[in-house]
């Protein structure tokens, strides 16, 4: 499957730019809560606005909060981030507690995190210490000076020794030991 056929844009896992190491800069810039004053689907978001919204904006003075009532349309959260990302999220029929959690997600994430497919679950700036592989990595250096084709490099060296060959080797060994004995005398 090739990358271009996928609808999601792809990205690598990235470290959050050391945000929060010295001081924390909230990446959420602006959040718009769109809801209907009468429909049941907006019930949860209306509860959230009545009970928690003032506390939310008081605790996050850096975030601009807009409320946009609109008649007979579904409830929606739209978050805009420092890096220019815009996240649109439907909160149709979501309860008060669910919306509290989603608001927390939108507030703490760095841009549109869910909008990208991760190519891998790990990433490094230094993929290899010994250097990338080349065709000559782990090659026998003797090949550099050999004239190919050469049966030394071409013959199968993974076969077990045949019985005849084993017998011949034993005979050779015996001859050597006989010679040693003669020298010993």
């Amino acid at each position: 499957m090739s990358n271009k056929n996928l609808f999601l844009k792809s990205a690598f896992v990235r470290a959050p730019l050391q945000n929060g190491v010295g001081r924390y800069v909230c990446q959420l810039q602006r959040i718009v809560l769109k809801f209907c004053k009468s429909h049941g689907a907006s019930r949860g978001i209306r509860d959230f606005i009545e009970q928690d919204l003032v506390d939310f904006s008081r605790q996050n003075p850096g975030v601009v909060v807009y409320l946009k009532p609109r008649r007979h349309r579904g409830p929606v959260l739209v978050a805009e981030y420092l890096n220019g990302d815009r996240v649109w999220m439907s909160v149709h029929n979501k309860t008060h507690s669910e919306i509290t959690k989603w608001m927390e997600v939108l507030r703490t994430q760095q841009g549109d995190v869910a909008g990208a497919r991760l190519k891998k679950y790990q990433y490094t700036d230094y993929p290899s210490v010994q250097g990338p592989w080349t065709p000559f990595t782990f090659k026998d250096p003797e090949l550099n000076v050999a004239t190919l084709p050469d049966p030394k490099f071409g013959a199968n060296n993974r076969l077990s020794v045949s019985a005849t060959e084993k017998l011949r080797l034993m005979f050779e060994k015996q001859k050597i030991s006989e010679k040693d004995m003669k020298i010993g005398e």
Binding site: L143, L148, P149, P151, F153, G154, A155, N156, N157, L159
Partner: peptide, 15 residues
């Protein structure tokens, strides 16, 4: 062609 060759593939059977 022979001057490009840098590797030999090992045979499967003993000759």
């Amino acid at each position: 062609i022979v001057q490009n060759v840098t590797n030999q593939i090992r045979q499967l059977r003993l000759v």
